[in-house]
Design a protein around this nucleic acid. Structure first.
Length: 273
DNA sequence: CTGTAATCCTGCGAGC
DNA sequence: TGCTCGCAGGATTACA
């Protein structure tokens, strides 16, 4: 389900529980992509939620204990939900944090590509991101830095946009959309971009992500997360065979990096190498 | 270095 | 109605 705009929406909705104290932690037995260690239960119980924020597609819950500052790091994978709900069936529920006002912060994830891990300090967390070489937030993207990653490589644009080291938080939907808005074919190789095209791509990424956030992200039929409205404004994603919103040409679907890739053959002509 | 495929999972819709 | 198949918003690894 979640790319940056959807994660941003989840985080924004969770702001209401900052200040709450976590009374107890309950976790399921099924294994997520990364294992939750049972010893972490005691380190989380009794702490206070100081802040909840986002980095790329990662959710960070800042906790404060006695002399410590642990951090929960949550990734929603493809189908994860991280939300305060009551009276929800326990199906696919992998963790429950009991809060001091009687509410419960719960993590659901049918496909279990998501994860929750605990890190001892802000520094430990930063080390995790550094090891991953997580790239800049779209908002912080600079043409100069982006050029270094993109304009000297034979890799295609679609693959580059999905690479979290190049830019953090862009996933399959918004990679497709950013290519369309910048009028660049997803198979264009980075090194063939002119300076102008590179600038256009950076601007398009920012625009697409900003607009999606404003609409609370994209809600797809199978997703667990509800409330987003951007699915009605997508230019190309999941629109194979339908008319381009700009020129009416039929949107095409190809597979790049094993992911469905959509583009308008008229608005995004393939550059001849 | 690049691209491709497979892997971890469950659920859903299409087609027979 | 019930089955199989393909596909799905992610990230990582192995291999040619």
């Amino acid at each position: 389900m979640p790319e940056l705009p959807e994660v941003e929406t989840v985080v924004s909705d969770l702001q209401k529980i900052t200040g709450r104290t976590i009374r107890a932690v309950r976790h399921g037995k099924k294994k997520l992509r990364l294992p939750w260690k049972p010893i972490w239960n005691a380190r989380v119980a009794g702490t206070r939620i100081e802040a909840i924020r986002r980095r790329g597609k990662w959710i960070i819950v800042e906790l404060s204990g006695k002399g410590t500052a642990p951090r929960l790091l949550v990734h929603l994978g493809m189908t994860g939900r991280f939300t305060v709900v009551a009276h929800e069936p326990a199906l696919h529920r992998h963790m429950v944090l009991d809060l001091d006002d009687g509410t419960e912060l719960q993590f659901f994830d049918p496909r279990r590509f998501g994860s929750i891990t605990l890190h001892g300090s802000e520094q430990d967390l930063q080390d995790v991101f550094e090891r991953k070489k997580l790239g800049p937030e779209p908002e912080d993207l600079q043409v100069v830095g982006f050029s270094v990653a993109v304009c000297n490589t034979a890799r295609n644009l679609k693959t580059l946009l999905l690479d979290q080291r190049v830019v953090a938080g862009v996933g399959n939907i918004y990679a497709n959309e950013a290519c369309f808005v910048s009028k660049l074919h997803p198979l264009r190789r980075g090194a063939t971009l002119t300076r102008t095209e590179c600038q256009r791509l950076v601007q398009s990424i920012k625009t697409v992500i900003r607009r999606a956030i404003r609409h609370r992200g994209t809600t797809l039929p199978d997703g667990g997360y509800l409330g987003g409205g951007f699915q009605n404004r997508l230019y190309v994603y999941d629109r194979a065979g339908q008319g381009c919103r700009t020129c009416s040409a039929a949107i095409e679907r190809i597979v790049v990096a094993n992911r469905a890739t959509y583009y308008c053959p008229a608005c995004q002509p393939i550059a001849l190498e």
